Simulated scan of single mutants.
Amino acid sequence: MSTASTAPREDPAAPADLIEVGHVTEAYGVRGGLKIQPYSAQSEALLGTRTWWLRKGKEVRRVEVVNARRHGASVTATWSGVSDRDQAQAWKGWVVLVPRSQFPRLAEGEFYWVDLIGCQLIGKGEHGEERLLGSVSEVSDNGAHAILHVALVVPVAPGQPTQPMMDDRGRQRETLVPFVEAYIRGVDLDARRIDSDWPEGF
């Protein structure tokens, strides 16, 4: 039986800006194809470059992608060194990474989810004044649009010291904000800021 030992070797010089963009779920077909589950509805990072890095535990390997295409909500791909189903199946569970510097440029007004994580959400106070509500900890997809998961802080004016907003069990509270024009007024990635009409009292 063929194994991953025939695949590309470990790469000790992997780029410093690697971003996890998906993982291998299973073999696809009988000729070495693989099915990749992207970590967001955006698969451009997977489709826009022909060099990926695969990681499992502490091992990182570089692969040269022969082809990659969308397949429903997944991406199917083949890469050098994998030519049959047994070899492909040996990659199941490996995480796929791509350098952030190689992500394709998006159209104006579009954003990669990974770039939104860590941004501060600015909402509105009772009298319409700006309030820092929290920071984006995660982005997910509900099938219609992206959802910002915001770790809440006690609302304060932007630039002021913050403290987490806790629930009755001592955990930081979270709110879910639809990433749509009805609530999001603007995104400034350089300032790590998302301006919204999300109310302070939500």
Rank of each mutant, 00 (worst) to 15 (best):
A45C: 12
L46D: 10
L46Q: 09
L47W: 11
L47H: 15
G48L: 09
G48P: 07
R50H: 11
W53Y: 14
L54T: 06
R55E: 10
R55Y: 07
G57K: 10
G57Y: 07
K58E: 05
R61W: 12
R61K: 15
R62V: 13
R62M: 15
V63G: 15
E64L: 15
V65I: 15
V66L: 15
V66T: 13
N67D: 07
N67K: 13
N67S: 10
A68E: 01
R70T: 10
R70A: 10
H71Q: 13
H71A: 14
G72A: 06
A73M: 07
A73P: 02
S74H: 15
V75W: 02
V75R: 00
A77V: 13
W79C: 08
S80E: 11
G81P: 01
V82W: 01
S83V: 14
S83W: 14
D84W: 02
R85A: 15
D86G: 02
Q89H: 09
Q89A: 15
A90S: 14
W91P: 03
W91Q: 04
W91M: 13
W91G: 03
K92P: 00
K92N: 01
K92H: 06
G93I: 12
W94P: 02
L97Y: 13
L97K: 07
V98A: 03
P99M: 02
S101K: 11
S101E: 08
Q102Y: 05
R105Y: 09
R105M: 14
A107S: 06
A107G: 10
A107F: 06
E108R: 05
E108H: 13
F111V: 08
Y112M: 08
W113T: 04
W113N: 04
V114P: 05
V114F: 15
L116A: 10
I117P: 03
C119V: 11
C119W: 13
Q120F: 12
L121M: 14
I122L: 15
I122G: 04
E126N: 09
E126D: 11
E126G: 04
H127I: 05
G128Y: 12
E129P: 00
E130L: 15
E130V: 00
L133T: 08
L133M: 06
L133C: 08
G134M: 05
G134D: 06
S135T: 09
S135K: 11
S135Y: 11
V136E: 11
S137K: 14
S137M: 09
S137C: 14
V139N: 09
V139F: 12
S140D: 12
D141L: 02
D141M: 04
D141R: 01
D141G: 00
D141H: 09
D141E: 09
N142S: 03
G143Y: 07
G143T: 10
H145A: 13
H145G: 06
I147E: 07
L148Q: 03
H149K: 10
H149V: 03
L152P: 02
V154C: 05
P155Q: 04
V156Y: 02
V156L: 02
V156R: 03
A157N: 00
P158D: 04
G159R: 04
G159E: 06
Q160T: 11
Q160G: 00
P161Y: 10
P164T: 00
M165Y: 00
M165Q: 03
M166C: 00
D167T: 00
D168M: 04
D168N: 04
